[in-house]
Amino acid sequence: MGRAVCLCSGGLDSTVAATIARRSGMDVYLIHVSYGQQAERREIEAIERIADAIGASDLMCSRIDLFRNISALTTQGARIPRGEEVSLDSESTPPTWVYCRNTVLLSMAAAYAEYLGAHSIYVGFNAEEAMSYPDNRPEFVEQFNALLEKAVASFSRPPKVVAPLVDMRKKDIVRLGADLKAPLELTWSCYLNGEIHCGTCGSCQHRRRGFVEAGIPDPTEYQH
Rank of each mutant, 00 (worst) to 15 (best):
S92P: 00
S92C: 02
S92R: 04
P95L: 01
P95G: 00
P95H: 00
T96S: 11
T96P: 00
W97D: 07
W97K: 03
W97N: 11
Y99W: 11
Y99Q: 10
C100D: 10
C100N: 14
C100Q: 08
R101G: 07
R101P: 09
N102H: 15
T103F: 13
T103M: 11
T103D: 04
V104K: 06
V104Y: 14
L105M: 14
L105H: 09
L106H: 11
S107D: 07
M108R: 11
M108E: 07
A109G: 06
A109L: 03
A109S: 07
A110D: 09
A110N: 09
A111H: 13
A113N: 13
A113W: 12
E114C: 14
Y115F: 13
Y115T: 14
L116D: 11
G117D: 09
G117M: 07
A118G: 07
H119R: 15
S120I: 01
S120N: 10
S120H: 15
S120K: 10
Y122H: 08
G124Y: 03
G124M: 05
F125L: 05
N126E: 14
N126W: 13
A127C: 01
A127N: 01
A127L: 05
A127M: 00
A127G: 01
A127Q: 04
A127Y: 02
E128V: 02
M131K: 00
S132C: 05
P134E: 02
P134R: 02
P134L: 01
P134F: 00
D135Q: 01
N136V: 02
R137P: 06
R137G: 08
P138V: 00
P138M: 06
P138W: 06
P138R: 05
E139S: 13
E139H: 14
F140L: 04
F140P: 02
V141W: 02
V141G: 01
V141P: 01
V141N: 01
E142P: 00
E142L: 08
E142G: 02
E142W: 05
Q143I: 06
A146C: 03
A146L: 09
L147H: 00
L148Q: 05
E149A: 14
E149K: 15
K150N: 11
K150I: 11
A151F: 09
A151L: 12
V152Y: 07
A153T: 13
F155C: 12
S156G: 09
R157Y: 05
P158Y: 04
P158I: 08
P159M: 08
K160T: 09
K160H: 06
V161P: 01
V161Y: 00
V162Q: 10
V162E: 15
A163M: 08
A163F: 13
P164N: 09
P164W: 10
L165R: 10
L165C: 08
V166L: 14
V166K: 09
V166Q: 12
D167W: 12
D167T: 14
M168H: 08
M168Q: 07
M168Y: 13
R169P: 01
R169C: 06
R169Q: 09
K170L: 03
K171E: 15
K171H: 12
D172Q: 15
D172E: 15
D172F: 10
I173D: 07
V174M: 11
R175E: 10
R175P: 05
R175Y: 03
L176E: 12
G177T: 05
G177K: 08
A178F: 03
A178N: 11
A178P: 05
D179H: 07
D179R: 10
L180A: 04
L180Y: 03
L180I: 05
K181D: 15
K181R: 15
A182I: 04
A182Y: 03
A182V: 05
